[in-house]
Design a protein around this nucleic acid. Sequence first.
DNA 1: TACGTGAGTTACTAGTAAGTAACATGACGG
DNA 2: CCGTCATGTTACTTACTAGTAACTCACGTA
Lengths: 212, 212
Amino acid sequence: MSSEKPGNSRGEGPTATACAPGSKARVRDRIFETACDLFYRHGIHGVGVDAIVAEAGSNKMSFYRSFESKDALVIAYLREQEREYWAWWDAAVARFPGDPRRQVEALFEAQLEIAKSNNCRGCALGNAAVEISDDEDVLSNLVRAYKDQVRTRLHAMARAMGARDAESLGDALMLLLDGGYFTRLIFPRGSGPISAALPAARALVAAYLTAD
Amino acid sequence: MSSEKPGNSRGEGPTATACAPGSKARVRDRIFETACDLFYRHGIHGVGVDAIVAEAGSNKMSFYRSFESKDALVIAYLREQEREYWAWWDAAVARFPGDPRRQVEALFEAQLEIAKSNNCRGCALGNAAVEISDDEDVLSNLVRAYKDQVRTRLHAMARAMGARDAESLGDALMLLLDGGYFTRLIFPRGSGPISAALPAARALVAAYLTAD
DNA sequence: TACGTGAGTTACTAGTAAGTAACATGACGG
DNA sequence: CCGTCATGTTACTTACTAGTAACTCACGTA
């Protein structure tokens, strides 16, 4: 996911992920978008405040006028990634209302599509889970809630299909999905095992729908 | 993977992963084992040389007498993780010689077993792939080679089963495997979707073995 | 006893990161 | 024309990290 952000730049005040209520606009957005991009590409630990503001053509003071701390920025980043992810998910799913089987297929199709692009580095939230240590409560709770919701949604879809063991099918689909994100870090474009995700998902769904 | 190291401490000279040929023994091993443990638990970027030597009850000078640099240590760490991983893999597979279908099941059984333990933090090599940037050639080549071999082995097993589309089946199994490692970071013990990996693998194998 | 060696101690350099203070500039509205 | 507000600039503090220098200690062996 990730890649380019939607067009919330300029024109409608503070973004949904802001920190202060009636605050700045211009520079903050520029810094934030740059930060999202860099965090996604190089990881959270791998990008410093200096690098962000330099890339954004700004400076540290402007940064700290818009963000309380780097931690606050990271949280905003993760929230934004989550927002974009669900937007992407909903868009994929919305094409087949009432047809959970096609919806699942659409998800895997869309995932492969993104994985083929150059700037895909897997799942931003999942990657963050690797970087952060367990005692960073705010961050890990955020990621945990996200992953929980992925799982819940897949369970629901499996249930809507009338699968024999909806929990298990949903979990299996989640493994395929996350396996795709994880392996995408190593295998460029669509060259990794991710290209097998869609047929595997189809086969799994079929297997869990037939009584055995 | 990871958890406790095998007993290569003391008695047979330098370890397989050493850097200098006829070098030290005692302190080096202590530091190395500590480093492996800390790297695995907190990530490579998350652990400094000071923390390692402190935890090992040693000091920085002794560290730099045994290791050329932190980078060298990281490389040794990844090599060691890879060695342990294949030892684990071979052990799981060796229980069912000539029966690739049972071998695959054994892998997923063993994976779940480890995932249930407290100190499991998923796949060390895969996690490293998240942390390192693409331009760190030595490290990313190391991880890439490892992932390639996982894939190759799964392809071979799928082929040995006589699967219709062995490449696709092998890839799908890899997605399940890596999905399990990835999600394990968030879901403690066996609570995540990883518990669905074995039945899903079974179902996939069955689906790819029957002519459709 | 003397000496070599593996290991610990202290103290340092250099670089980088987060975060802050004080001041400068430039545009825009009244 | 003046003030204000958003932004840029320079320079700093603090803390941490990789890596090194110089010295000391303890132990085993010739």
